[in-house]
C-alpha cells in the first residue's frame, strides 16, 4: 500500500514538473500557462518528490527507504510518459476522425 501511495505521489510530482515544461503545456493544459503558474507547478512537483522521500523514510527506514524512493521515482516518471503517450494517441485519433 505504501508503494502504491508513493508511486501515486511521485506520478503527481512528475506530472506537475511536466506541466511546468512549455513543450508539454499544449498537450496537458491545452494552452501555454502563465509564468507564475509554471513556477508554482515546478515548485509543487519538486516538493511532492521530496515528500515521497520523507514518506519512504518513515515507512521503511533511511537506507531501505532511499532505495525504494528511487524505484518509486522511476515508476512514477514512466507512468507520466505513458499518460502523455495516451494523451497524444487520443488527440491524434480525434483529429483523424474529424478529418475523415
Amino acid at each position: 500500500m505504501i508503494h502504491f501511495l508513493a508511486i501515486t505521489l511521485a506520478l503527481c510530482g512528475f506530472a506537475l514538473l511536466a506541466i511546468s515544461m512549455p513543450r508539454h503545456q499544449a498537450n496537458m493544459a491545452g494552452r501555454k500557462l502563465a509564468p507564475v503558474v509554471t513556477r508554482r507547478a515546478r515548485v509543487g512537483g519538486y516538493t511532492l518528490l521530496l515528500l515521497v522521500l520523507v514518506l519512504d523514510g518513515f515507512a521503511f527506514g533511511a537506507g531501505y527507504g532511499a532505495v525504494a524512493w528511487f524505484g518509486h521515482l522511476s515508476i512514477g516518471a514512466w507512468s507520466v510518459v505513458a499518460w502523455l503517450c495516451i494523451g497524444v494517441w487520443r488527440a491524434d485519433a480525434a483529429s483523424t476522425k474529424s478529418e475523415s
Partner: peptide
C-alpha cells in the same frame, strides 16, 4: 514490493 521495483528498473 521493492523487488518488483528492482525488476521493473
Amino acid at each position: 514490493g521493492l523487488r518488483w521495483l528492482y525488476f521493473l528498473s
